[in-house]
């Protein structure tokens, strides 16, 4: 289709404006991070002597090494287990279609719109009574449960579109359901599973509410929770806070830029799917 010149130019202008609107806040954050620690710089103002050392200070003050390790452990605790559980359940609901599947599915759907704040109070007492408060398990276990509605929904949508002939053929070869699942269906579901993995990684890494309620020690929290603690402690020192925020942002940004294609399509599908 031929695009009108004028139309193309307005399009470009809008795009650039949209990008500027997105990026400028980060630039402001960056420039502010270079001002002397403890000062109140104004808006976008390049400092006379950029203090690159602020990043090193923030790295130390935020215990970035510990935080990265902690978030990684939490992600490793949440994501693989969630994927396995959700894939199995999605397989059962979408492909095995056992009796009573509508009720089960409906129970999961019930959780799709649940705001986490709705159950944070009982979760606190539940986790406390399990003796898990202030451990990473306090974030990991509830998150697995909380991710189930979406994850099962997502995997069911994959399996329900799968033709049955496939399984029928494999079954004739004498494979039992367990083998069938792992040898045939999981490999076939790889794209759906990997997109789900990306989404779950992101939501775990950025989880805030559970982290601040269930874990006091920032070194055992998720990145977002740790950033909350960093603000709670250093919020009064604007340049240091900006430097720390950028450092804490960096890992997700880097992962995002590396896997950006998958990310964008996963996020878009994540919204539309279902």
């Amino acid at each position: 289709m031929i695009v009108g010149k004028r139309e193309a130019w307005t399009g470009r202008v809008f795009l650039v404006l949209l990008m500027a609107f997105t990026i400028v806040p980060f630039i402001s954050l960056f420039v502010t991070a270079l001002h002397p620690s403890g000062s109140y710089p104004s808006g976008l103002e390049w400092p006379s002597e950029p203090r690159w050392g602020n990043f090193a200070d923030a790295f130390r003050a935020a215990h970035m090494g510990d935080l990265l390790w902690s978030s990684t452990l939490i992600v490793l605790g949440v994501v693989p287990v969630s994927l396995v559980l959700a894939t199995m359940a999605g397989f059962a609901l979408g492909h095995l279609r056992m009796a009573g599947r509508h009720l089960v599915f409906l129970m999961f759907v019930l959780g799709l719109t649940l705001p986490f704040e709705g159950i944070i109070t009982p979760l606190y007492y539940l986790v406390r009574d399990m003796g898990l408060l202030n451990t990473r398990w306090a974030i990991i276990l509830p998150l697995i449960g909380l991710f189930m509605p979406f994850a099962v929904y997502w995997m069911r949508a994959h399996f329900i579109n799968l033709p049955d002939d496939l399984s029928e053929a494999a079954q004739l070869d004498g494979a039992n359901v367990w083998q069938l699942f792992w040898r045939v269906h999981v490999p076939l579901a790889a794209p759906a599973i990997s997109s789900l993995a990306i989404l779950l990684f992101l939501w775990t890494w950025n989880q805030f509410l559970l982290a601040i309620v269930l874990v006091d020690d920032p070194a055992k929290r998720t990145m977002a929770g740790a950033l909350g603690a960093f603000q709670g402690q250093w919020g009064t020192d604007i340049p240091l806070l900006c430097a720390g925020s950028l450092l804490i942002l960096a890992p997700t940004l880097i992962v995002f830029l590396i896997f950006q294609r998958r990310f964008v399509s996963a996020l878009l599908q994540g919204s539309v799917k279902g």
């Binding site: 759907v109 019930l110 799709l112 719109t113 649940l114 705001p115 986490f116 704040e117 909380l146 991710f147 509605p149 979406f150 994850a151 929904y153 989404l199 992101l202 939501w203 890494w205 950025n206 989880q207 805030f208 509410l209 977002a224 994540g270 919204s271 539309v272 799917k273 279902g274």
Partner: peptide, 12 residues
């Protein structure tokens, strides 16, 4: 929004 976790698509 990470605080509320997964959002459904067209949903229930």
């Amino acid at each position: 929004s990470p605080s509320t976790g997964p959002k459904p698509g067209p949903g229930p």
